[in-house]
Amino acid sequence: MRVATTRGTRGVWTRIRRGTGGELSAEFLGTFTLILLGCGSVAVAVAGLPGSGRQEGAFGAANWLIVSWGWGLAVAFGVYVAGGVSGAHINPAVTFAWALRRRFPWSKVVPYWFAQTLGAFAAAALVFAVYRPAIVAYDQAQGIAARPESLSTFSIFATYPAEYFAGGVVGPLLDQVVGTAILVGLIAALIDNRNQAPGANVAPFVIGLVVMVIGLSYGSNAGYAINPARDLGPRLLTWLAGWGELAFPGSYDHFAHYWWIPIVGPLVGGAVGVLVYDLFIGQVLITRQTPESEPTPEPGVVPGSTETDTEPDGQRGSDQQDSPP
């Protein structure tokens, strides 16, 4: 009986791992890796180095390089961790965008979102456990008596808008829409084998560079969450850990009720990014996939022009499927 029960249990787990359960497991660990390294890099810049005795002088704006590189590499390794199982969305905006373009089943959208957010929360909890002494020391050095007053240490985990928005909603929301549109549109380009997708399995690294350049280009506006799970999971952790209204409803001196913007903005931006790519590039590539009896034009050559293609018929356009990274 015990042998039969053991075999039955193993069979259940095997079926789970082979199906959606395995994909959710990968999304959990991929997002966990993303947040563990990303929030870890912010912890180094904000509280780790200043209190460690390893930093003789303040890095100032150079700390942004630590943060940008940290998040970029965090995304790259998160994609490498989960890519072979789930496609490594590790971002609800990517999952939503791929469902919109009919490359991903709607029935899996909410389960993916849950796994991504849970992975982000778990990783944030581990970062908090590791860097708690540094956070406490930082608050003491700054004369901060209560955690809800510590916007800097809150920023280790979740995002907030710049002071120059003066509490406005439109600016931060637009920032999240644009930043995520750039991210998802470029991911669509980088994994599109009909286009010039990077080879030799370097796409995850290049996608990480996309996140890094978004941080360098747009990060100061609102912390470039560009990922609902990346903000919501750690934000839940900060709420439980005592940051109070900084987490929910997301209020401080120069902003109020901010918590929903890093969720709604990226979802809208992801949809915009993938639709723009498909409209301007994806549909063009489909149109240029001419029948095998006609040569496929070289990039930049209009079909039907007098220039001829030098490759054998049908060679360019083979294996032209794209999938999430």
Rank of each mutant, 00 (worst) to 15 (best):
W71Y: 15
A129G: 13
G265A: 13
G78L: 04
G168I: 10
H257M: 11
I156K: 00
G143N: 15
Q55K: 04
G83F: 02
F128D: 02
G48K: 00
N227S: 10
F121P: 00
A129E: 09
G304A: 08
T153G: 10
R7W: 12
L285G: 09
A146H: 15
G265W: 03
Q176N: 04
Y224E: 02
L240K: 09
N195V: 06
G233D: 09
A203E: 12
Y131I: 05
G269K: 06
G83K: 09
P312S: 13
P148C: 13
G300H: 11
V94Q: 01
Y277G: 01
Q315L: 15
V130A: 11
F121I: 06
G30L: 06
S41E: 00
H89K: 08
Q320E: 14
E23F: 05
P249F: 13
S155E: 00
H254M: 10
Y218F: 13
A62R: 11
A47V: 15
N227R: 02
V46I: 15
A99F: 09
V268T: 01
A61W: 13
I207T: 09
D322A: 11
D175C: 13
V169L: 01
W13Q: 10
T31K: 06
R102M: 02
Q55V: 02
V301L: 11
A47S: 13
F28S: 00
R102F: 14
Y80V: 03
T308S: 15
V94K: 02
T9D: 12
V12T: 15
G38D: 04
A124E: 06
L73A: 04
L246A: 05
V302K: 10
M1E: 14
I135T: 10
Q320Y: 13
Q283W: 13
G233H: 04
G53W: 10
F114K: 04
G11H: 14
P50M: 06
G30D: 04
G250M: 08
L285D: 00
W71M: 04
F121Y: 14
W260N: 03
A158L: 08
L209P: 06
I226C: 08
L173I: 07
G215Q: 04
Y160R: 08
P303D: 13
A58F: 11
P249M: 12
G72H: 06
A271G: 03
R235D: 02
P249C: 15
R15Q: 11
Q116Y: 05
V268N: 03
L100R: 06
A241M: 15
R101D: 01
S217R: 03
G22Q: 10
P291G: 11
R10T: 02
G11S: 12
D139F: 05
P262T: 06
F77K: 04
T153A: 03
E294G: 05
E27Y: 00
A43T: 05
V81E: 02
I144L: 11
I187C: 03
W113R: 01
P198K: 14
A162F: 01
G304T: 10
G185T: 03
A43I: 00
I16D: 09
D253V: 14
S305K: 13
W13N: 07
I207C: 04
L37V: 14
G51L: 10
G244W: 12
P262K: 07
A82D: 08
S220K: 03
I66G: 06
P198L: 14
S25N: 01
P295R: 05
S305T: 15
A4F: 09
Y218M: 15
G22P: 02
I16T: 10
G314W: 09
S52Q: 08
L73M: 12
W259R: 07
F104V: 07
